[in-house]
Design a binder for these strands. Structure first.
Length: 386
DNA sequence: TACCCGTGGCA
DNA sequence: TTGCCAAGGGT
């Protein structure tokens, strides 16, 4: 890189952290000049090119990857992506599938609203758009589960549309390169970043589609492989010459860490009720935690007490009760301590027939991660196909 | 507008 | 062990 170092970044807003950003502040043109071109060139030489969802312009495959990758790391997505494509080669196949099957394939990946929206989105594409994804980011964003950034990513990769993304990678790169202080999860800071995202796009020209594909991928690659959270590899960064954080040696202060509240903890008991080769696994409501998945009956506290009768199991139906090892599971927003109870019953009591699942059907069941762990520990599924 | 919504890898 | 947060969206 022999380009002159832009001094215009000196004029950037240097308001202190968490100060209310000046709503009128907008990125100086000089701050973003040449940024995209360097990202594009770098991506083509040093970016990632062999991920399973790359080297295609098929909006279906791109969309599926973008949804799975929301708040989820690449390595985690890989096996799920392969299974989905194998089972649902086209958006029509996905739209036609029962939601329960979609949930089974998604189980373990987390954020289950994504799976419900994925299914609904496929059906809308088929019914409202004739089986083809909408032609612009604006239209794509009207579909369920697709926000502004995901719509832009799909449109850029599939159509080469000139529309900006703003994900976790981009926020980190922008915060450092443009010296943007303040918690990026707050609305005000996020709006500023969208402003930069629009201004930093590759210029309009004959090669805009190709540039947009490389640029969009390049921003993600830059964040994932160079501008990492812990120790950014500034020595080989394509935009180091204009990076505010590097110049001021503040890479570790940016992006500004958000202030986190202590997460609450909760203790519950879970019942593994077994009767005639079946286990009680009612489907959870569509909304809320683990929405749409099968799960074990649960109750507040650790001792079953009167809970069994409440669930429709009379005391004389119970052959044996075993308390299993405590299991803790941490969510983003709270920590759950689970006391599992294995209950052998000689009758189904007044329980709903539909809520029982055969033990040999457990391996493919749509179970939340900690429930999967409990079930596998008890019925010895080890870690075959999960 | 803040909060809700999973899971796993990593320092 | 604990905290952080990743190709965010919905409400």
């Amino acid at each position: 890189m022999n380009e002159p170092i832009l001094s215009a970044t000196d004029t950037l807003n240097t308001a202190s952290d968490n100060a209310l950003p000046d709503a009128a502040s907008c990125p100086p043109a000089a701050a973003t000049r040449g940024f995209a071109e360097r990202v594009v060139t770098w991506q083509r030489q040093h970016g990632r090119h062999a991920l399973p969802w790359q080297n295609t312009h098929d909006p279906y495959r791109i969309w599926l990857s973008e949804i799975m990758l929301q708040q989820t790391q690449v390595a985690t997505v890989m096996p799920y992506y392969a299974r989905f494509l194998e089972r649902f080669p086209t958006v029509a196949d996905l739209a036609a599938a029962p939601q329960a099957v979609v949930m089974e394939l998604w189980a373990g990946l987390g954020y289950y609203a994504r799976a419900r929206n994925l299914h609904a989105c496929a059906q809308q594409v088929v019914e409202k758009w004739g089986g083809k994804f909408p032609p612009t980011a604006e239209d794509i964003q009207t579909l369920p589960g697709i926000g502004r950034s995901t719509a832009a990513a799909i449109a850029a990769f599939a159509y080469g549309e000139r529309s900006p993304i703003l994900d976790g990678n981009v926020k980190r790169v922008f915060a450092r390169h443009f010296g943007i202080h303040g918690d990026p999860t707050t609305r005000a800071v996020e709006l500023r970043m969208w402003d930069y995202a629009e201004k930093a796009l590759p210029p309009i020209g004959p090669d805009t589609p190709d540039a947009m594909r490389s640029y969009t991928q390049g921003l993600m690659d830059l964040g994932a492989t160079i501008c990492k959270r812990g120790d950014p590899d500034c020595g080989v960064c394509p935009v180091r010459a204009t990076c505010v954080a590097l110049r001021e040696a503040r890479q570790h202060e940016l992006p500004t860490a958000r202030i986190r509240k202590a997460i609450p903890e909760r203790s519950i008991g879970m019942l593994i009720v077994e009767h005639e080769g079946r286990v009680l696994l009612p489907r959870r409501p569509a909304t809320g935690i683990w929405g749409g998945l099968l799960s074990l009956p649960e109750f507040d506290g650790e001792e079953p007490g009167t809970a069994l009768a409440t669930f429709g199991l009379p005391a004389d139906a119970i052959v044996r009760i075993d308390r299993l090892a405590l299991l803790s599971h941490t969510f983003t927003h709270f920590k759950l301590h689970i006391t599992p109870w294995h209950i052998r019953s000689q009758s189904a009591g007044s329980l709903n027939t539909d809520d029982w699942l055969a033990i040999d059907a457990l391996p493919s069941a749509a179970l939340p991660a900690p429930v999967r762990k409990l079930i596998d520990a008890l019925y010895g599924q080890d870690d075959l196909l999960r």
